[in-house]
């Protein structure tokens, strides 16, 4: 992977500098140093640099390690970094978690509205007459990410249950690689319908009502396991991982942490059993069988 090689080379070059500079910011540049590498997927509300800064600040202070937040365009890239043990942990989606269950361990699951659960929405234009999913036949459909549970797997499973395939059911479909982008695609009319993370949709509806104003929810899925924070089954560094886990689980007790949670509209993080994601695993299995 070219990106990671580049990453390593830069880290090695930065190593000499690390000796000269004490403090978190210089140590952070050391790719393989004591810095916690924490991956974020676009499940998350992207483009919020303030949020990233605050999260990074909280994690550094709380975990006692420098923290490097790693973002990539697709789920796949983050998942690949995680499974190849280039990240200490990453906030990924339930689907890649169940897909790579053998290689990953569950660190924590966010609590939204008090529960580690969320839904997948199928959204359509506000004025659209459609009443159920089959009315969407022939649509241009916007998926979020092929590795997203809410933004792809749930809808794909729904189709598989009826023996449908996206390429036959929809006239056209595309991936926006971001849940917010799905909302934008549907709101602008680029897509007739879209599969979106219910948590993201509800949060965006609160923050940017103008964006969701033109859309409505056609179908809500059953409650599913919230996109979790996962780590390689055998951690890169046990102490860093446990420090990170502790920081996450105690986030709601810290003022800075609560500020981060407020921005994320989350209640906290909880250690959960991986069986939480069995429903997602079942969907993945169904889709896998459908081929």
């Amino acid at each position: 992977m070219g990106g990671s090689q580049e990453f390593d080379r830069r880290s090695l070059l930065g190593g000499a500098g690390a000796l000269l500079f004490a403090g978190a910011s210089s140590a952070k540049d050391l790719g393989l140093g004591p810095s916690i590498h924490f991956g974020l997927t676009p499940v998350f509300l992207t483009n919020d640099l303030e949020l990233l800064g605050r999260l990074e600040g909280y994690l550094e202070r709380s975990a006692g390690f420098p923290v490097t937040l790693v973002t990539r365009r697709t789920y796949q890239e983050i998942t690949a970094l995680l499974t190849s043990r280039q990240l200490d942990a990453a906030w990924i989606c339930g689907y890649p978690f169940v897909a790579h269950r053998e290689e990953l361990r569950l660190v924590a699951v966010p609590l939204w509205r008090g529960k580690p659960l969320y839904q997948s929405y199928i959204i359509v234009d506000q004025d659209r007459k459609a009443e159920n999913f089959t009315d969407l036949r022939g649509d241009i459909h916007a998926f979020s990410d092929p590795d997203s549970n809410s933004g792809f797997l749930v809808t794909r499973t729904l189709m598989a249950e009826q023996g449908l395939r996206p390429e036959n059911f929809f006239s056209r479909f595309f991936f926006t690689y971001g849940h917010r982008n799905v909302i934008r695609a549907v709101a602008s009319g680029l897509a007739g319908s879209g599969s979106v993370d219910g948590y993201v949709y509800d949060v965006v509806a609160g923050i940017e009502p103008n964006l969701t104003k033109g859309t409505r929810i056609l179908r809500r899925s059953e409650l599913l396991g919230f996109p979790p924070i996962a780590a390689p089954r055998s951690p890169i560094d046990e102490s860093r991982l446990s420090a990170l886990t502790r920081a996450l689980l105690t986030i709601s007790t810290d003022p800075d942490g609560r500020a981060v949670l407020d921005m994320l509209r989350l209640d906290g993080f909880m250690a959960e059993d991986p069986t939480l994601f069995d429903t997602i695993a079942a969907k993945a299995a169904l889709v896998g069988q459908a081929g």
Binding site: A142, R172, F174, T176, N181, R184, A185, S188, L190
Partner: peptide, 11 residues
């Protein structure tokens, strides 16, 4: 033919 990227770029 990445529709979203083109749309995003236009926007």
């Amino acid at each position: 033919e990445d529709t979203w990227e083109v749309f995003d770029a236009i926007e």
